[in-house]
Structure formats: C-alpha cells, structure tokens
C-alpha cells in the first residue's frame, strides 16, 4: 500500500476533533494569560512561545498528518526547520549585538577608549 493510500484512509473525524479541541485549549490559554496580565517578562515570552509551538505541533500532526505521509516530507520539513532556526535565531542574535554596540554615545566612547583611539 502506498503512503498516499495509507494517508487517505487513516484520517478520521475523531482525530480532527481532537486536534481542534487541543488547539482551542492552547489558543485560549495564550490569550487568557495576556489579557489577564497573568505573566510578565521572560516567563511570558517562554510560556507563549511554548504554547505556540505546542499548538503548531498539534495542528501539524492532526491536520497536516506530518509523519504519516512519505518519509521525504519529514526530511524536507526538518531541513526547513533547521534553516528557519539559523535564519531567525541568527538575525535576532546579530541585530541584538549590533544594537548593544550601537545604542549610546557612552558605549562608543568606551569602545574608543578600550581600542586606544583618541578623537
């Protein structure tokens, strides 16, 4: 049996309802946390990103059936995830460093002093 066939027959109404219910729970939790000001700072970022990743995982398994189709779709997805990690993580990393080194004149003076440059 080809993967197309197995893919086509394995999806049930139950699995879509489960995926939908889980997604609604994750999504409402995220909005409740923000609208009720339940968390702040780093913990807010960590919790919201975790909820988003959990919901994305649920929708990819229950709606997109990733993992049940061909082996190559998983390989391509994982390579893409790697590229995205480098692209987004790298951009944030570089730009934060740039901001750190460029923000104030005080910082510039410090750099000039440590490098032994006089204006």
């Amino acid at each position: 049996m080809s993967s197309y066939e197995s893919n086509a027959h394995s999806a049930t109404v139950g699995s879509y309802i489960a995926g939908f219910a889980l997604s609604v729970i994750f999504c409402f939790s995220a909005f409740t946390i923000v609208m009720g000001n339940l968390l702040t700072g780093t913990s807010l970022v960590v919790v919201l990103i975790s909820l988003a990743l959990a919901q994305a995982f649920v929708q990819m398994i229950f709606f997109l059936h990733l993992g049940r189709g061909s082996h190559w779709s998983k390989v391509i997805f994982l390579s893409t995830a790697g590229i995205i990690f480098i692209l987004v993580g790298g951009s944030l990393w570089i730009m934060n460093h740039l901001n750190y080194h460029m923000t104030s004149g005080q910082m510039e003076e410090q750099v000039l002093k440590s490098e032994g440059i006089t204006k």
Partner: peptide
C-alpha cells in the same frame, strides 16, 4: 496557513 497564523497571533499580537 493555519499553522503560520499561530505564530502571527503569538509573536505580533500577544508578545
């Protein structure tokens, strides 16, 4: 598109 929207509402609107 549903999966992409998860990250839009989280990163743009909630954070």
């Amino acid at each position: 598109l549903g999966v992409v929207w998860i990250f839009i509402f989280t990163i743009v609107y909630l954070l």
